[in-house]
Design a protein around this nucleic acid. Structure first.
Length: 629
DNA sequence: CAACCTCTAAACAGGA
DNA sequence: ATCCTGTTTAGAGGTT
């Protein structure tokens, strides 16, 4: 990997420096997000470097960027930036970093959208990409990196695609880039236009790196170089004593873990194995995603805290010290509501924010499907209901989605991307007895979704309508009334056998898997960062159920989603997945006191032995069908 | 383009 | 009379 000819190695020196500096900064940022203290550095008045301004994405189109970033120019720019390193301030560095980060992602998304429009990018990969972007978490990325690092073969394709190839790199090969990008941007699946994507993408990344590097020049500060032992301006070898990428005798480069006896060896390794090639580029970009995800998460949690304190009439005595430094990207664009969150004029909530707390930054996966869309539609549809069922049908298992965005949906006035039928079914299956009265279903909706705390007439009518309309919902008479249960068989039937066995199924399965795994990892990441958004019990799944369910990632989600919501509204995983497979019994006495007081005495009214909800059939798992019986 | 799905809205009926 | 529950119909809009 990354073996380069000497001449080219020389040519890459500057770029390498830039990349390393960027990498360190990224790492520092990422780690800093978890440790509030690390952000103590105050922002100095922004002073964007000239070259920085020049590179400002706002001022140039992607095409221009691509042109601007031709290899020679890039190198020149990098050199210039290196020279400027000592002059820069941290404030400008961070701001520039954030700006570039945001811009990069916007550009990427735009580009992807364009590709989609042009039909160059299949939707599935895009969905995967979205989920990656939104559910990205360190552990996910680690895996991604591992994939990336394990892909030698893709390089040829990339070489061809590399019009831009920083000529210096041509020999650096082992570009696993396409693969990494595939998770991010489905390049590999591009028919013919694939050439453009890698090029631009990488160009953007380089652009970002360079701009960052430049902005980063501020060096005296610590943040970049751990423990601030070395001024960054110094040659990267110098920072070796405490290199962020080196620890415990091994390379900390994502997915690498190569053993290096000493710093010298590590530096060599770094230069050889992690030179500025496509793979490193992709990895670097992935790291960007990590950082952004953390930022988003932090922003979200901060806002929640804010809302909590507001609710409790606590004056946010100290405005979240750890949050301050972050105000860049997240606060700038995402957190701007921090101060104006509650004022009605929220741009984001799909409708007039009926609920005070409307984290406009949605959590993980929601961002993609829900918020963005609802946002866009919100202007045209006052009520907010938009047809967005695709996710329901394909890649977004309701269980998974709900599990992961439990808190989000609870607080955000965002319409969940599921059909009423799916939601109702989920509510029923989630209940201890797998049966709910209409009122309980209502309560579940309002409890779980802020969105359903308003327009009650509308959605309640819809719920009733769905209950009556769909055969999968069975009304069971009771002594005191009626409860609704789910006829799983009917529900499955209801679903068109779309992709059974077809390639599309495979695709969906894959994307589903990707999504699931990402989400799972995302949860892990949240746990890591002490941001217990969702309390999904990490698969306390019994072997029996697991045998079937665990075949599909979606089932993991089920296990984590089968959470019982307490009356206080908190999600608590009290139900094991098995409970999904309990036969449905009809309550002898419907619970008028909804949640906690659920009668134990059951009357076997209906016995749809739901083998296992295989919860999101939405996910198109065709496998369990046999086992269902 | 047609068929299908989903949502919204509304009317209506029966029971509490 | 009012509200809740449940059924049914119709139309719009999206998806396949």
């Amino acid at each position: 990997m990354g073996r380069e000819t000497k001449s080219k190695a020389v040519g890459n020196q500057e770029i390498l420096k830039a990349l390393q500096a960027a990498r360190q900064f990224l790492l520092q940022q990422a780690s800093g997000l978890n440790s509030p203290g690390s952000n103590e550095v105050k922002q100095s008045p922004v002073q964007v470097p000239v070259s920085m301004a020049m590179m400002s994405p706002q001022m140039i189109t992607p095409q221009q960027m691509q042109q601007i970033l031709s290899p020679p120019q890039l190198q020149a720019l990098l050199q210039q930036q290196q020279a400027l390193m000592l002059q820069q301030q941290l404030g400008s560095k961070q701001l520039a970093f954030q700006q570039q980060l945001i811009q990069m992602q916007q550009l990427q998304q735009q580009h992807i959208l364009n590709l989609q429009r042009q039909g160059l990018v299949p939707l599935q990969p895009t969905a995967a990409m979205q989920s990656l972007q939104q559910a990205m978490c360190p552990s996910d990325l680690q895996q991604l990196w591992k994939e990336v690092s394990g892909v030698p073969s893709a390089e040829d394709a990339l070489k061809q695609a590399e019009g831009l190839d920083l000529s210096t790199n041509s020999s650096n090969s082992t570009s696993a880039f396409p693969k990494a990008a595939s998770a991010h941007i489905p390049l590999h699946s591009l028919p013919n236009g694939q050439n453009h994507t890698p090029k631009r993408d990488r160009a953007r990344l380089f652009e970002w790196i360079s701009s960052f590097t430049k902005a980063d020049s501020g060096d005296d500060h610590v943040p970049l170089y751990s423990k601030g032992s070395q001024p960054p301006s110094s040659h990267h070898e110098e920072l070796s004593s405490s290199h962020p990428l080196y620890g415990h005798g091994e390379c900390k480069w994502p997915g690498c873990e190569a053993l290096c006896e000493d710093m010298g060896q590590f530096i060599k390794h770094l230069n050889n194995e992690h030179a500025l090639d496509d793979r490193s580029t992709a990895q670097c970009r992935v790291q960007m995603q990590v950082v952004q995800q953390l930022e988003i998460q932090l922003a979200k949690e901060s806002e929640r805290l804010q809302a909590m304190m507001t609710h409790l009439h606590m004056r946010p005595s100290e405005p979240k010290p750890f949050n301050q430094p972050l105000n860049l990207a997240s606060s700038g664009s995402l957190l701007k509501r921090d101060s104006e969150a509650y004022p009605e004029g929220l741009p984001h909530p799909p409708t007039s924010a009926a609920t005070p707390i409307t984290p406009l930054r949605q959590g993980p996966s929601v961002i993609s499907s829900s918020s963005l869309h609802t946002h866009s539609h919100s202007h045209t549809h006052p009520v907010g209901p938009i047809r967005r069922r695709n996710s329901d049908k394909y890649c977004t298992p309701i269980a998974s989605e709900l599990a992961q965005n439990c808190e989000f949906y609870k607080n955000a006035d965002v319409r969940p991307p599921f059909t009423y039928a799916s939601l109702i079914r989920h509510a029923i299956l989630e209940s201890p007895d797998r049966q709910l009265t209409l009122n309980e279903i209502y309560n579940w909706f309002t409890r779980k979704f802020a969105y359903f705390r308003r327009n009650t007439a509308t959605w309640k009518n819809a719920v009733r309508h769905n209950l009556s309309l769909h055969k999968c919902f069975v009304r069971v008479e009771n002594v005191k009334g009626a409860v609704w249960t789910v006829d799983e068989v009917e529900y499955q039937k209801r679903r068109p056998p779309k992709m059974t066995g077809s390639p599309t199924l495979v695709k969906n399965m894959i994307s589903g898997l990707g999504f699931g795994s990402l989400n799972a990892s995302y949860q892990a990441a949240l746990a890591e960062s002490s941001l217990s958004l969702l309390n999904s019990s990490p698969l306390v799944t019994p072997p029996s159920a697991a045998s079937l369910n665990m075949l599909h990632v979606g089932h993991d989600d089920v296990s984590s989603t089968v959470e019982q919501v307490n009356s206080n509204g908190s999600c608590s995983p009290t139900l094991s997945p098995q409970q999904y497979s309990h036969p449905v019994h009809v309550k002898e006495e419907p619970t008028e006191v909804e949640e906690d007081s659920r009668p134990v005495s059951l009357l076997a009214g209906v016995t749809h032995s739901l083998p296992l909800p295989s919860d999101e059939r939405d996910l198109e798992e065709d496998l369990p069908t046999e086992e269902l019986e």
